[in-house]
Design a protein around this nucleic acid. Sequence first.
DNA 1: ATCCAGGGGTCAC
DNA 2: GTGACCCATGGA
Length: 301
Amino acid sequence: MKKLLIAKPALFSFDECLWFLNRNYDDCLHHIEPGSLSKAICINGENIAFSLRDQDQHLVLDLTHGGEDVAQQEALVQYIIEWFDLERDITPFYQLLQKNKTLGYMANDFAGFRLIGIHDLYEALCWSIIGQQINLTFAYTLKRRLVEHYGDHLSVNGLSLHIFPRPEVLQHVSIAELRALQFSERKAEYLLLVSQLFAAGTISKQHLLQCASYEEQVALLTAIRGIGIWTANYALMKTLKQLQAIPYGDVGLLNALLNHELIKDKKDNAGIDKLFKRFKGWESYLVFYLWRSLSVVKRDL
DNA sequence: ATCCAGGGGTCAC
DNA sequence: GTGACCCATGGA
């Protein structure tokens, strides 16, 4: 079995990332076991499966299905690097955290936690549309139904590793079919529209990368029906790792800020602005760490 | 039973 | 530009 090594940067904890990926939810797009994860993705048209584990100064990537050629292996390594944001020096963020009386504890409690991405823009947009205005448990249920009905999968070591459906497939699904899976009429409409746009090549990650500014990227996304300011920022944060992205209006973010008594109420926009101003350039990391703090509360209850 | 959930569109003003 | 209203459904 082909084995690839990926060097671990400073301020990185695989366990911390792994724990977040596993949280309390049932994510169908990866399988977690203590100390390792398994996943399947499509690279250059081929479905590949791998597992990832922590070993001393490296992450060890074991290819468990496909990926024989070197170009695919390089792409896979790059995928992991982007997924866990391994090339970023996050010490400036930690310095900002440690200066903050309320949030400083995170530098210790969540040490080495990284902004975990979603490489595929289409998947990120679909996932955020699914997650709009419903609780996360149900959102993961809906995602699983979508993936199991319309996505590929690889069977490896007794595990069924699912791959997010391609837009070319989803664009031809009917609203009635999605309604039967308990998607709301609106979510079904939005998902089909986004699928059509991606299948037709009207929108892509490449289009976003060609934008001159962050504002332009937001405008490009929010021009699409079903994608508002929250969804656009979520996708830019997860897919492009645009660190100035703040998913405004996010219920989880607001609850985390309330838990830490950093805002008076959910309409305290001034309080929010004041906090994020201190984390200029690291806004997304702050959001991600605040989301991480929600899981702590949930776990401790 | 009741309120809320990692929102967004629409429409009145 | 702002705010009220609707959507839909499961979780707690």
